[in-house]
Amino acid sequence: MSMNKRDFLTASAGLGAAFMATGALAQAGPGPRSAPPVNSGVQPSSVDPHYKPRRINKAIELWEDGQAVYYTGTGTGPGVDPYAQGVRMARTWADALCYECEHGALDFTAIREFMRGLRDGGPTRSGHRFPAVFVSTPIIGLDEAYMRANSWVLGQLLDCGVMGIHICHARDPKAIQVAAQMAVRYPFDYPDTPKVPMRGLRGSSAGYAAEIWGVTGNKYCHIADTWPLNPRGELFFGVKIEDTIADMNVAQTLAVPGITMAEWGPGDHNYWLKGLDAIPEDEPMPRDIGARPDMQAVRQRVLDLCRKNNLKFLNSGTPDASMSDYIIKQLQDGAMVIESREDTAIIGREFSKRKMPV
């Protein structure tokens, strides 16, 4: 970077003041629903304006530095040009973007176009080619046979150039083993990487992904593996423990080698723990469902197992200190993947003394 730190921080402060004046910092809750600029420019006071990236995957680099990753959605959907949206989101405030296919359309062409736009719109201010992109998939962790039958979807998604897979309703440890060890990996024995019971199934067809990453096809094969199982890997793999059946097997599931991160899915858990009563028909949702004792017990179980298995814990974050997902509390608890808006990320990055530019 050519800008010196004093000028860098002065510019950030001015943008931060303007951002507050618009009321944007008073808004809470995740999601890219507003049309304002994708990055206010606000930097933590600890930022290094001469930062040089070490990795392709910005999220993994932050985790290696002991920093949380802040993510939001891609803003894609009906009526949105995926390529143009990729160009726009290349300069997002977020470290990572979740391409939502759990309930959104599973459209491989649209994902490829989004990734192409993201590449063409980069690099990020931190010097990375683009923010890390992971997909929340429609494939769930139902059972082993189901995952084997649907494993092709995960390979197709990675061939689009995304850098992470997130499996919903991770109920069965065997299903997660198939996904984490077979569907998203190549069949190679990588250096300094433990052997796992299942062998990868990805084939020699990831030319598009390599082009998006800016590497040769050969190089892609060497680095397109899951971290931290493979210390050199540039992919990550996550699971959602988000229903009462997943709860019964959570200890075995989160012990499966090849997982990077895990979350507890408060939205779906609310359905499973409280039933239809969780959704008031003619009233707004309760303000802080995550504060209920039954919900907190689920969260704590997943958090404890993430600590035990060296996984990154995912939780939403808010700047509201009265809420159960207050960002400082989340960071103090050890959350390392935060679904949030920019206002929350600004607070969190300052608290953790982050050096990587935003």
Score class of each variant (00 low, 15 high):
W227C: 02
A13N: 06
C306N: 07
M198Q: 00
D143L: 09
P78K: 08
E263N: 13
S126P: 03
D304I: 04
D268M: 14
P231I: 00
D81H: 04
C221H: 13
R301T: 07
R125W: 04
Q181W: 09
Q27M: 06
H128F: 02
M198L: 15
S126D: 03
A26N: 13
E242G: 06
G207K: 04
R33H: 05
M261F: 11
G214W: 00
R148G: 09
D120E: 09
A278S: 15
M115V: 02
V215K: 10
S316M: 11
A246E: 14
T92H: 05
T137M: 01
A262C: 05
S324A: 14
P280E: 10
W264L: 07
Y326I: 08
A90W: 06
M198R: 08
D288R: 02
P194C: 10
I139N: 12
Y326S: 05
F108M: 15
W152T: 11
L62E: 07
A13Q: 03
A297V: 00
A297S: 12
N4R: 02
T92V: 08
V184F: 02
S45C: 05
G77M: 08
H103W: 09
P44C: 01
I167L: 15
V47A: 10
D48T: 00
D288V: 10
I56W: 09
G290T: 02
L158I: 06
P37L: 11
P286R: 08
H128Q: 03
I176L: 15
K308W: 01
G117S: 11
D325R: 11
P228S: 01
P82D: 09
Y51N: 10
E283H: 11
Y83T: 05
A28R: 11
D288I: 11
I140L: 05
F19R: 04
G31E: 03
H269P: 03
S34I: 00
A209T: 06
D192K: 10
P32T: 11
Y83S: 07
A90H: 12
Q300G: 07
A68N: 12
R307T: 09
R129L: 02
S324R: 01
P280Y: 01
P228W: 05
A180F: 05
K274D: 13
G66V: 13
D81V: 03
F351S: 01
I60P: 03
E283L: 13
E113R: 15
V184E: 13
D48V: 04
P191Y: 06
R88D: 06
T193E: 00
T260Y: 00
P284N: 12
A210C: 00
R129E: 02
Y146I: 03
C168M: 13
P82V: 12
D268N: 04
A255T: 09
N4I: 00
M115L: 15
Y99W: 14
P138W: 10
I259N: 01
G23F: 10
G258L: 12
D48N: 08
L157K: 02
R349Y: 08
S136K: 14
G233Y: 08
S40R: 02
